[in-house]
């Protein structure tokens, strides 16, 4: 393992300190591993997200004007605890209530929901939404459902803009859920990630192999296959998202998200292939983001996220955002 590191135990704390030093508009509460805005607007719905670390810039990089008020950082790939989330809720309370944006994993759901329960006992008005955009996982009534991945960035952006516009907690929750219902993602890995505490790759891939439908924690994908060209990959990914969203004649927002170990050159190249594929399906691209937004440590690979837009979502997507990792 070659990493820029002191000791594996201090990775998350030292990283968070680095974020706070680079971006003085946020502060880091070390004891509870919470990154929050220094100034909490009392007349705006508070937005909190978080989860395991290792997905940087998610979520701490999206704390700032027009997006999140706080991000709660767990250990690498492990949900933060009830107490951490509960503390974040207390430290960011406003007069308009709090919305938790949770990626749909059992650990995250339980810790965030239990913390919300404690906050309700303190008479804090609180709601939660669960992002589940990853179509690699089959959704059914009998399973825990799809995972939350890069589509979460759109939920942060759109709910954040609605909160900034002074909307009520119920209205912000409704627009967050509308976003969740219209966003889908699929990803692939060219290499495994290496968890600092473990020091070795989580899975092995041959020189000519890739893992398709992969998650963001080094968990297995839908299928292992021989490596494909960017155009072939774009065709498969856009095709599968099209089956879910029916892209024809729709206005769309797209994220080409790197998993941490893939250069921008390849992400932009993939965007060219994906854009062509979307246009062939009759979809109209309104906005595209290319970069590392929801990573999986040092994994090479990328995901494609597509959001179906209407006028309300377009308005919130275009609104100002000033955060370390996204400025619009």
């Amino acid at each position: 393992m070659k990493k820029i590191i002191n000791t594996p135990e201090n990775v998350v704390i030292e990283m968070c300190k680095g974020i706070a030093k680079a971006h003085p508009e946020v502060e880091f509460i070390e004891k509870f591993k919470v990154i929050k805005k220094k100034e909490i607007d009392q007349n705006k719905v508070t937005l909190i997200s978080g989860g395991g670390s290792g997905h940087e810039p998610a979520h701490a990089g999206f704390v700032g004007k027009g997006m999140l008020d706080a991000a709660v950082c767990g250990d690498v790939f492990a949900s933060p605890s009830i107490k951490q989330v509960y503390t974040a809720i207390g430290k960011t309370e406003s007069k308009k209530g709090t919305l938790l944006i949770v990626k749909n994993y059992s650990g995250d759901c339980m810790n965030f929901n239990e913390a919300a329960e404690l906050a309700r006992e303190d008479d804090i008005e609180i709601e939660a939404v669960y992002v589940n955009d990853d179509i690699a996982v089959k959704d059914s009534l009998y399973t825990v459902g799809r995972r939350g991945v890069a589509g979460t960035i759109f939920v942060h952006k759109i709910a954040g803009a609605a909160a900034e516009a002074g909307k009520s907690l119920a209205e912000v929750k409704a627009v967050a859920e509308k976003t969740i219902n219209n966003v889908r993602s699929i990803g692939f890995a060219l290499t495994s990630c290496t968890v600092p505490a473990q020091g070795t790759p989580t899975f092995e891939l041959g020189e000519d192999e890739m893992e398709y439908g992969v998650g963001i924690h080094g968990e297995p994908g839908r299928q292992r296959m021989k490596i494909k060209s960017a155009d072939e990959l774009a065709k498969t990914m856009v095709g599968q998202i099209d089956e879910e969203l029916e892209l024809k004649d729709q206005e769309l927002a797209v994220i080409i998200n790197g998993f941490g170990g893939t250069p921008l050159q390849e992400l932009y190249l993939l965007n060219n292939s994906v854009s062509n594929e979307i246009e062939q399906k009759g979809g109209k691209i309104y906005k595209t983001l290319v970069g590392n937004f929801m990573t999986s440590l040092d994994m090479a690979g990328a995901s494609v996220t597509i959001l179906k837009l209407d006028d309300e979502l377009k308005g919130y997507l275009d609104a100002e955002a000033k955060t370390p990792a996204l400025k619009i």
Partner: peptide, 15 residues
């Protein structure tokens, strides 16, 4: 246990 067990184990074993 609630505070220090990681992931879902904290809420489950803690409760």
């Amino acid at each position: 246990i609630m505070e220090y067990c990681g992931g879902a184990s904290g809420p489950i074993w803690g409760s």
